[in-house]
Amino acid sequence: MAKTKDTNQEAQKRSGALGYFLTPILLLALCGGLAVLCYSLAPAHDVQRYLNLAFMDTLKVTSTTSGLNIRHRDIKTDDQNTTEDKPKLQEGKINYPTFGEQYAKLEAKSINLMVGVYYGVNSELLSRGACQSTQSAIFGTVGNHIIDAHVNTFFAELHNLAVGDTVTMYTDYGKFTYEVTEKIEFNKNDKKYVGVTKDDVLTLYTCAPQVIGSSDTRIGVRCALKEKEFYEPLES
């Protein structure tokens, strides 16, 4: 009887130890799963900002694309470059960007969006900000200005832009204000909105949000130029 009692106590001790061992592992797995799920569903660039802070920027990815030269221009987004006394220049000097250069900032106050715009599109630049197609018109010239960004990051709220909202492009040579004229939706094989135009339009697009898999549908907006302001006159 005493021996049976001892065996039972031994068994109980072992099973209790198993619980003590498993519980923290399960807890870790649960927390990790929740963290990955949140990172997957939330705009990743917001999470990335805190990760950079937590890990002292060591998670920032340096350029991995061979030959890609990423540069940033000093772009002011307030009106420091102009004063009320100076007439606003309708024509002016344009500083043309090179591939990989962040040469503009896009602001849409209605959706609390402020993002840097890189000239050129590849996967690495898309992970850093919005990208402008090299086949589109540079801001300050007339044509279709095509900008896209990941729906998982910077353009997560793009679908909330409404007709009439203002989109402002800041560059180091001028400020260009657009107004949303239509919301667009198209298939990735439809090139209607990414071609050359004669009018000055701004096209913003991203993938349609989809939890599982990647969508073939693109959503976005088309905007018409409302106001332009150059900071320096054309060279004579």
Partner: peptide, 10 residues
Amino acid sequence: SKVDDTGWDM
């Protein structure tokens, strides 16, 4: 003209 892939497969 090209339409970029702007969504990650999660």
